[in-house]
């Protein structure tokens, strides 16, 4: 969750900060991949929810 801060006199800076947080959050989520553990009968068992990259 990204929460807005106080905005007196620095709206533009706060908007830029929130935009950066949004972009960073999406890039983190886009990087999150499933990792193959070991092949079993030619298939890959996939492990959930580990962050890579």
């Amino acid at each position: 969750m990204i929460r807005p801060g106080a905005m007196e006199g620095r709206v533009k800076e706060e908007q830029e900060r929130i935009s950066r947080d949004i972009v960073d959050s999406f890039h983190r989520m886009a990087r999150k991949k499933r990792i193959p553990l070991k092949p079993v009968l030619g298939l890959f068992i996939m492990k959930d929810k580990r962050e890579v990259g």
């Binding site: 807005p4 706060e14 908007q15 935009s19 972009v23 886009a30």
Partner: peptide
């Protein structure tokens, strides 16, 4: 292509104006 390369300001404007939190969903 890659998500969120350039953003319009509507969401950040609303967050600041209303003090509402932002939930990113990918």
């Amino acid at each position: 292509e890659d998500p969120m390369q350039s953003l319009k300001n509507g969401a950040t404007y609303l967050a600041l104006k209303e003090g509402a939190p932002i939930l990113p969903v990918y």
